[in-house]
Deep mutational scan, measured.
Amino acid sequence: MASQGTKRSYEQMETDGERQNATEIRASVGKMIDGIGRFYIQMCTELKLSDYEGRLIQNSLTIERMVLSAFDERRNKYLEEHPSAGKDPKKTGGPIYKRVDRKWMRELVLYDKEEIRRIWRQANNGDDATAGLTHMMIWHSNLNDTTYQRTRALVRTGMDPRMCSLMQGSTLPRRSGAAGAAVKGVGTMVMELIRMIKRGINDRNFWRGENGRKTRSAYERMCNILKGKFQTAAQRAMMDQVRESRNPGNAEIEDLIFLARSALILRGSVAHKSCLPACVYGPAVASGYDFEKEGYSLVGIDPFKLLQNSQVYSLIRPNENPAHKSQLVWMACNSAAFEDLRVLSFIRGTKVSPRGKLSTRGVQIASNENMDAMESSTLELRSRYWAIRTRSGGNTNQQRASAGQISVQPAFSVQRNLPFDKPTIMAAFTGNTEGRTSDMRAEIIRMMEGAKPEEMSFQGRGVFELSDERAANPIVPSFDMSNEGSYFFGDNAEEYDN
């Protein structure tokens, strides 16, 4: 993207840094990872977990959730003011799984939030270390993106479920800051804005008074975040219109849905970061690795190297396929839920299948599930090659597409044709070009129609051997075009429920 120079890199967003050079960025990201790792080690000690239990991804998720809940100030305040039966607002906890007599047992633990905050700050040299908290939120978000298709949420806001490739980060909490905003897809931002506008339509006082002023500035800020994701002048001009509207209503909703559809071809720039579970960072720190000293990046080879040398386990339900569970977590670790499966298959070195073909449910185990038949197995999170994460949407291309997802959002900077089903997408653009945004709409449609099938995206960008740390010898991959490109292809993934 041309304006790259004016933006802070995501590592800076990730670490609240002012302008830093590459070495400083690597050190501050490393410091953040160190903090998460030290916190995780301490929690495993508190909970008396064995090494194996500490490497269980379900335990990692519970521990991450506990610290996120302990620092969720708004919710904590709300819980104190609106006490609900049987919930102690000062405590947080969740299921911890232990191996007892050759069987997995679930144990519900409860801790004072104050105590968890103390352990977290102690692991982070006394700081609140917001960057580390956001990092864990993005890992949870990436896992949700890989596990669930947001059909219901899309339909509720009037969008087409086939636009799911635009929904990265749709389950990120509001408090995820600049680093969170960077990884949100165009569809996620559109959905947040539509929800806001709908509230304004239904509630006369939404934009009024002292609160209304705050609401208005939040609305304009979200519009600017979305505008910054678009790469064409016409899309940005249309966002200006939406932002400046005196009284946002149905016309703005129409414009936003139009823009979301246009992003299936004229893709937005959305950041991709490899955020790993805390149970990967903990053992690495415990083994003596100093992330701050060595430096770390979320968008280069580092996460690949770390996963190459990590042992992570997962509980497996009786009829689940461990290899499929591994694929789910591998995609989440690489922030690749909406990437082209052919690119992923090449990088991973084994075939990556669409969601609907995987015999696996989510990673988390519900409290009512029976533990008797639970097994555990090693997650295979290694890769054959590594590639640089991208934040450009890439230019655009036609490809055989599917009944489910009709476009992709690249996660890796790797040369390819970008699949999208042009006739299906263009069919949504018939007729409606009147109104105050008509010239911009016409211009956007013209650009979409001009998108050429034979153009290559990320020209000359390749993948790298894991021994090639400096990215000196790019390998331009070859793809098996007979395979499906979309992950949520004609899909039956479970729906995400809060």
Results as ranks from 00 to 15, higher is better:
residue 227 K to Y: 08
residue 215 T to F: 01
residue 88 D to G: 02
residue 423 P to I: 06
residue 490 G to D: 02
residue 213 R to F: 06
residue 378 T to F: 03
residue 335 S to T: 09
residue 422 K to A: 15
residue 227 K to G: 03
residue 488 F to T: 00
residue 169 G to P: 02
residue 161 P to L: 04
residue 430 T to C: 06
residue 111 Y to P: 01
residue 120 W to M: 10
residue 2 A to L: 00
residue 30 G to W: 09
residue 393 G to M: 01
residue 403 A to C: 10
residue 322 P to S: 11
residue 393 G to R: 06
residue 74 R to T: 04
residue 85 A to Q: 14
residue 164 C to I: 12
residue 94 G to M: 11
residue 168 Q to M: 11
residue 106 R to P: 04
residue 68 L to Y: 05
residue 299 V to R: 06
residue 367 S to L: 02
residue 313 Y to D: 04
residue 460 G to N: 04
residue 344 L to N: 10
residue 28 S to W: 00
residue 496 Y to K: 04
residue 22 A to Y: 00
residue 288 G to R: 15
residue 258 F to M: 09
residue 205 N to P: 01
residue 150 R to C: 08
residue 228 G to R: 11
residue 380 E to R: 04
residue 141 S to I: 06
residue 241 Q to V: 02
residue 343 V to S: 12
residue 422 K to F: 11
residue 118 R to M: 09
residue 436 R to Y: 03
residue 330 W to E: 04
residue 225 I to Y: 11
residue 245 S to R: 02
residue 332 A to T: 13
residue 425 I to E: 03
residue 280 V to P: 07
residue 329 V to C: 10
residue 223 C to T: 14
residue 230 F to P: 02
residue 228 G to H: 06
residue 268 G to C: 12
residue 332 A to R: 03
residue 322 P to G: 07
residue 422 K to C: 09
residue 458 F to N: 06
residue 455 E to V: 11
residue 434 E to L: 12
residue 95 P to C: 11
residue 478 S to A: 08
residue 123 A to R: 10
residue 445 I to N: 06
residue 21 N to C: 14
residue 119 I to C: 15
residue 11 E to D: 14
residue 368 N to F: 03
residue 310 S to W: 01
residue 463 V to M: 09
residue 112 D to F: 03
residue 5 G to Y: 07
residue 444 I to R: 04
residue 446 R to I: 04
residue 368 N to S: 12
residue 224 N to M: 14
residue 247 N to C: 15
residue 372 D to S: 11
residue 63 I to S: 02
residue 349 G to V: 10
residue 403 A to M: 01
residue 241 Q to H: 05
residue 281 Y to F: 10
residue 358 L to S: 01
residue 277 P to H: 10
residue 130 T to R: 12
residue 290 D to H: 11
residue 140 H to G: 11
residue 152 R to F: 07
residue 356 G to V: 08
residue 106 R to L: 08
residue 339 E to G: 08
residue 407 S to K: 07
residue 317 R to W: 05
residue 83 P to E: 08
residue 466 L to T: 11
residue 475 I to T: 10
residue 99 R to S: 11
residue 470 R to H: 00
residue 90 K to C: 03
residue 86 G to M: 08
residue 329 V to F: 08
residue 29 V to H: 01
residue 469 E to W: 03
residue 233 A to R: 01
residue 223 C to F: 10
residue 179 A to C: 10
residue 119 I to G: 09
residue 117 R to P: 00
residue 188 T to W: 02
residue 96 I to M: 12
residue 136 M to E: 06
residue 406 I to S: 13
residue 341 L to F: 07
residue 196 M to N: 06
residue 397 N to D: 02
residue 498 N to V: 05
residue 255 D to Q: 08
residue 357 K to S: 03
residue 50 S to Y: 01
residue 273 K to E: 10
residue 493 A to M: 07
residue 427 A to V: 09
residue 313 Y to H: 13
residue 360 T to H: 08
residue 5 G to D: 01
residue 378 T to M: 11
residue 323 A to D: 00
residue 177 G to T: 02
residue 430 T to V: 05
residue 113 K to F: 07
residue 271 A to M: 12
residue 207 W to C: 07
residue 491 D to A: 07
residue 272 H to P: 02
residue 306 L to W: 03
residue 9 S to T: 11
residue 176 S to W: 02
residue 311 Q to K: 12
residue 113 K to A: 01
residue 179 A to S: 12
residue 104 W to C: 13
residue 382 R to G: 09
residue 434 E to D: 03
residue 316 I to F: 05
residue 399 Q to K: 15
residue 138 I to E: 02
residue 309 N to P: 01
residue 289 Y to V: 11
residue 256 L to V: 13
residue 493 A to F: 06
residue 370 N to M: 07
residue 55 R to A: 09
residue 427 A to P: 06
residue 413 S to T: 11
residue 155 V to F: 09
residue 433 T to Y: 12
residue 164 C to H: 02
residue 195 R to D: 03
residue 393 G to Y: 02
residue 273 K to F: 05
residue 258 F to W: 04
residue 476 V to Y: 09
residue 48 K to G: 15
residue 491 D to V: 09
residue 442 A to C: 10
residue 11 E to K: 11
residue 143 L to D: 03
residue 163 M to F: 15
residue 161 P to A: 15
residue 157 T to C: 14
residue 279 C to P: 03
residue 351 K to W: 05
residue 273 K to C: 03
residue 335 S to R: 03
residue 351 K to R: 11
residue 196 M to V: 11
residue 222 M to K: 08
residue 238 M to S: 12
residue 313 Y to G: 11
residue 377 S to Q: 00
residue 457 S to V: 08
residue 464 F to I: 09
residue 1 M to F: 11
residue 418 L to P: 01
residue 331 M to N: 10
residue 127 D to A: 14
residue 496 Y to M: 11
residue 53 E to H: 05
residue 308 Q to K: 03
residue 399 Q to P: 13
residue 209 G to R: 07
residue 474 P to C: 01
residue 313 Y to F: 13
residue 346 F to T: 07
residue 78 Y to D: 03
residue 403 A to R: 13
residue 213 R to E: 07
residue 32 M to G: 06
residue 223 C to E: 11
residue 415 Q to P: 00
residue 159 M to S: 05
residue 268 G to L: 01
residue 85 A to R: 13
residue 161 P to M: 02
residue 370 N to Q: 15
residue 92 T to H: 07
residue 494 E to W: 00
residue 101 D to R: 08
residue 404 G to E: 07
residue 43 M to P: 01
residue 352 V to C: 05
residue 250 N to G: 11
residue 496 Y to D: 03
residue 243 R to M: 12
residue 116 I to L: 11
residue 398 Q to D: 01
residue 182 A to S: 12
residue 264 L to N: 04
residue 156 R to G: 08
residue 302 D to S: 14
residue 307 L to A: 10
residue 426 M to N: 10
residue 390 T to D: 05
residue 233 A to L: 12
residue 121 R to K: 13
residue 64 E to I: 13
residue 232 T to R: 15
residue 244 E to I: 08
residue 137 M to N: 06
residue 325 K to W: 11
residue 246 R to E: 02
residue 331 M to H: 05
residue 34 D to N: 07
residue 48 K to D: 11
residue 88 D to Y: 00
residue 126 G to M: 11
residue 64 E to T: 08
residue 153 A to W: 03
residue 94 G to F: 06
residue 319 N to P: 01
residue 63 I to R: 07
residue 92 T to I: 06
residue 17 G to S: 11
residue 396 T to H: 14
residue 80 E to A: 08
residue 250 N to M: 13
residue 82 H to E: 00
residue 462 G to K: 03
residue 213 R to T: 12
residue 449 E to T: 15
residue 403 A to T: 15
residue 278 A to V: 13
residue 68 L to H: 14
residue 302 D to H: 14
residue 451 A to R: 14
residue 150 R to L: 12
residue 90 K to L: 09
residue 266 L to Y: 05
residue 150 R to Y: 07
residue 417 N to D: 05
residue 291 F to P: 04
residue 279 C to W: 10
residue 235 Q to A: 09
residue 251 A to M: 05
residue 304 F to G: 06
residue 24 E to F: 04
residue 19 R to K: 14
residue 221 R to D: 02
residue 80 E to M: 05
residue 252 E to F: 09
residue 226 L to C: 08
residue 142 N to P: 10
residue 176 S to Y: 09
residue 97 Y to P: 03
residue 184 K to Y: 03
residue 342 R to F: 05
residue 22 A to C: 00
residue 69 S to P: 08
residue 247 N to E: 02
residue 131 A to M: 09
residue 121 R to C: 12
residue 134 T to N: 10
residue 278 A to C: 14
residue 306 L to P: 07
residue 75 R to E: 04
residue 132 G to F: 03
residue 27 A to K: 15
residue 326 S to A: 07
residue 255 D to N: 13
residue 127 D to S: 13
residue 424 T to N: 13
residue 359 S to Y: 02
residue 211 N to G: 10
residue 464 F to M: 00
residue 374 M to G: 03
residue 468 D to A: 02
residue 19 R to A: 04
residue 108 L to Q: 12
residue 352 V to L: 15
residue 400 R to I: 09
residue 140 H to T: 10
residue 306 L to N: 06
residue 449 E to M: 06
residue 433 T to L: 15
residue 217 S to K: 03
residue 342 R to H: 04
residue 374 M to Y: 10
residue 226 L to G: 12
residue 40 Y to P: 03
residue 52 Y to C: 06
residue 26 R to H: 05
residue 130 T to N: 10
residue 456 M to Q: 13
residue 241 Q to Y: 03
residue 111 Y to S: 12
residue 215 T to W: 01
residue 153 A to L: 07
residue 296 Y to S: 11
residue 165 S to D: 14
residue 236 R to I: 03
residue 214 K to S: 02
residue 370 N to A: 14
residue 477 P to A: 05
residue 394 G to A: 05
residue 356 G to I: 10
residue 290 D to V: 10
residue 220 E to H: 10
residue 140 H to S: 11
residue 219 Y to I: 01
residue 438 S to T: 03
residue 304 F to L: 13
residue 280 V to A: 10
residue 397 N to G: 00
residue 110 L to A: 01
residue 8 R to V: 00
residue 364 Q to I: 12
residue 82 H to W: 13
residue 340 D to E: 11
residue 321 N to K: 15
residue 91 K to Q: 01
residue 374 M to L: 14
residue 423 P to M: 04
residue 93 G to F: 07
residue 381 L to F: 08
residue 423 P to N: 09
residue 192 E to S: 05
residue 26 R to M: 12
residue 443 E to L: 01
residue 496 Y to N: 09
residue 321 N to P: 00
residue 75 R to V: 04
residue 342 R to T: 04
residue 497 D to N: 15
residue 240 D to P: 00
residue 148 Y to K: 03
residue 287 S to Y: 10
residue 8 R to P: 08
residue 342 R to Y: 01
residue 489 F to G: 00
residue 194 I to M: 12
residue 100 V to M: 14
residue 284 A to S: 07
residue 36 I to W: 09
residue 447 M to N: 09
residue 353 S to D: 00
residue 375 E to M: 03
residue 221 R to E: 12
residue 142 N to R: 03
residue 163 M to H: 02
residue 434 E to I: 10
residue 481 M to H: 08
residue 112 D to C: 12
residue 136 M to I: 15
residue 184 K to A: 05
residue 124 N to Q: 13
residue 423 P to L: 01
residue 205 N to D: 09
residue 77 K to G: 13
residue 218 A to W: 04
residue 276 L to H: 12
residue 7 K to R: 02
residue 437 T to E: 03
residue 417 N to T: 12
residue 460 G to Y: 00
residue 480 D to N: 07
residue 20 Q to S: 14
residue 469 E to I: 09
residue 471 A to V: 03
